[in-house]
Structures are given as structure tokens and as C-alpha cells.
Computed example of a mutant assay.
Amino acid sequence: MAIPVRPGTSAGHWIPAADPRAVPQARLSWPLSPVPVVMKYFDAPETPYGPGHRGVDLAAVPGQDVLAADAGVVVFAGLVAGRPVISVDHDGGLRTTYEPVEPKVAVGDQVYRGQVLGSVLAGHPGCTIAACLHWGVRRGDEYVDPLALTGEVGEFRLKPWGGGP
């Protein structure tokens, strides 16, 4: 069985939360321009409250514009655990989140794809450069890999099979 893996990883170490064949390719646009370097990849938790990384961290510059990944409605713009977060609901049950971001939008605002939501702030935990944007996506209660929704699913390799019936 072929599974998608990120370039530079070994087979079987990365499986997106959602099968990319079940998701329209390029459903979302990148929240930073130009397309950023991914500093930390999505790592789906094994249980709803288990450890993992429920989004991707993207290399940014403090003050850089954060763009809406698709048209939608701002449902949150405020602090979560002391960090400024923006959440946008989109058609199809998707919700994108962006942090740390100084908002330029307010709850209830309708936004279009590519609209400036705010600006990246320095200080994202675990970021090894001046600033990183944490970008997360949920479909309902399930966190999904944002890269799978941009069409960035990597190359295909065969997963080792241990045999069996």
C-alpha cells in the first residue's frame, strides 16, 4: 500500500490525519507569502488529549502579514493561554487557526481568501528563529494536516509490510 511521506523522511513515519485523496487538493492557500519554510510539521496525537503537534509552524518575520487561507468568518480573535490567536470558520466544516498573531480583524468579520488577518508576533514556543506562525486546521473535532489541504503531501513510497494473513 502506498502512503504519502514527506520528502526526507523514511517510509511509514508520516501519515496525514486525513487521507489526502478524500480532500480536494489545494483547498486552502498558504497563510504567508511567499510560501514559507516549514519549521515543524504536523504530528497527529494518538488520542484526543495526547501529545502531538496539531498544526505546522511556518518560518516568518515579526510583523509579516498573515493571510486567510480561504473565505470564511472570524469566530475568535483573542488570547488563548496568553497567546494571541485568530480562528476562522470556512465552508465544509473547516476551521483554521493562526498564532501568535496581532489581529486586524474582529469576531464576526467575513474574510476572503488571501485577506490580511493580522501580523505575526515573535515568541512562538519552540520556534528557533525570530518568528514562526503556528497554522492549524480542524474538520469538526479532528485536527488535520494543513499541508494536505494545500496539496503539499510529499512523495509516495511503499510502506514496509510485516506479513500476516
Rank of each mutant, 00 (worst) to 15 (best):
A2Y: 15
P4Q: 13
P4N: 13
G8M: 07
G8D: 01
G12W: 03
H13R: 15
W14D: 00
A17Q: 03
D19L: 03
D19W: 02
D19N: 14
R21G: 08
A22P: 00
V23C: 10
P24Q: 13
P24C: 10
P24T: 10
Q25V: 11
Q25I: 05
A26N: 12
R27F: 02
R27A: 15
L28M: 08
L32I: 05
L32Q: 04
S33T: 12
S33G: 07
V35Y: 01
P36F: 01
V37I: 09
V38C: 04
M39Y: 01
K40R: 14
K40T: 09
Y41H: 11
Y41C: 01
A44S: 00
P48Q: 09
Y49C: 04
G50P: 00
G52A: 03
G55C: 06
D57F: 08
A59Y: 09
A60C: 05
V61D: 07
P62G: 08
L67V: 09
A68T: 11
A69D: 11
A69F: 05
A69S: 15
A69Y: 07
D70K: 13
A71P: 00
G72K: 00
G72M: 08
V73I: 12
V73T: 06
V73L: 12
L79T: 07
V80W: 08
R83P: 05
R83W: 06
V85P: 08
V85C: 05
I86N: 03
I86W: 04
V88E: 07
V88M: 08
H90T: 06
H90A: 06
D91I: 01
D91G: 12
L94D: 04
T96C: 05
Y98T: 07
P100L: 14
P100I: 15
V101R: 05
P103L: 12
P103Y: 10
K104P: 02
A106R: 14
D109E: 03
Q110A: 15
Q110T: 13
V111G: 05
L117T: 01
L117M: 08
L117V: 02
G118L: 07
S119D: 09
S119G: 07
V120Q: 05
V120F: 04
L121Y: 00
A122Q: 06
A122S: 11
H124E: 14
H124Q: 12
P125T: 11
I129P: 01
A130N: 01
A131L: 12
C132H: 07
C132P: 04
L133I: 02
H134Y: 04
W135R: 05
W135I: 02
R138H: 15
G140F: 13
D141H: 10
D141K: 05
D141E: 15
E142Q: 15
Y143P: 02
P146N: 11
E152W: 11
E152C: 13
V153H: 09
G154Q: 01
F156A: 13
R157L: 14
R157Q: 12
R157K: 14
L158E: 15
K159D: 09
W161I: 10
G162Y: 15
G162T: 12
G164D: 10
P165G: 09
